[in-house]
């Protein structure tokens, strides 16, 4: 990471601390925002958060690694999360799975070369009555078929 990138990240995190408070309870909201802006929480960002909250870097790392929606390595600009629970499975999840893999040319838990897409599974999305379902970034899509799933990818910038 370049020096000016580091500086701007530090500044960004300082602002977040100002907003959420210099307290451990602020940890998750801060991490969630960093994740959203950068598509992951870098080693440097984790150490900065630790320094400013006065906790150990390994504690931040430990928390980041616990939650599925936080990443310690760079992810694609868009994250597709396909529900793998049995209800979605019975509703045809496998076909969606195949279509997504084919369309993006990657497997699940992988990121495309152009860093635009990451494919992930997720536990139940709570859309069991309208499966198969997937979450693309913050948007939920239900009653998918392979064609609409691919269309959603194309419509998402």
């Amino acid at each position: 990471m370049l020096v000016y990138e580091k500086n701007s990240l530090s500044e960004e995190i300082e602002l977040l601390i100002e907003r959420f408070g210099k307290d451990r309870v602020a940890l998750l909201p801060i991490l969630q925002i960093i994740e959203k802006r950068h598509n992951y929480i870098s080693e440097f960002a984790q150490q900065e958060v630790a320094r400013l909250l006065d906790i150990h870097p390994v504690e931040v790392y430990s928390v980041v690694s616990f939650y599925n929606f936080l990443h310690r390595y760079p992810q694609g600009k868009n994250i597709v999360r396909l529900c793998k629970t049995i209800s979605c499975d019975m509703a045809g999840k496998q076909e969606i799975e195949k279509a997504l893999k084919r369309e993006l040319g990657i497997n699940f838990d992988e990121t495309t070369r152009d860093k635009k897409w990451t494919l992930e599974y997720t536990s139940c999305l709570g859309m069991c009555d309208q499966g198969p379902a997937m979450l693309v970034n913050d948007k939920i899509y239900t009653k998918l078929d392979p064609e609409t799933a691919v269309k959603i990818l194309n419509d998402t910038k």
């Binding site: 940890l27 969630q32 939650y67 997720t122």
Partner: peptide, 23 residues
């Protein structure tokens, strides 16, 4: 407050831990 994708946080004490910024 938003969770971050962990089923176990539905357990009330895990939820509290999560709110406090822990695993």
């Amino acid at each position: 407050r938003l969770g971050s994708g962990a089923y176990v946080c539905g357990e009330e004490t895990a939820l509290i831990e999560s709110l406090e910024g822990h695993r």
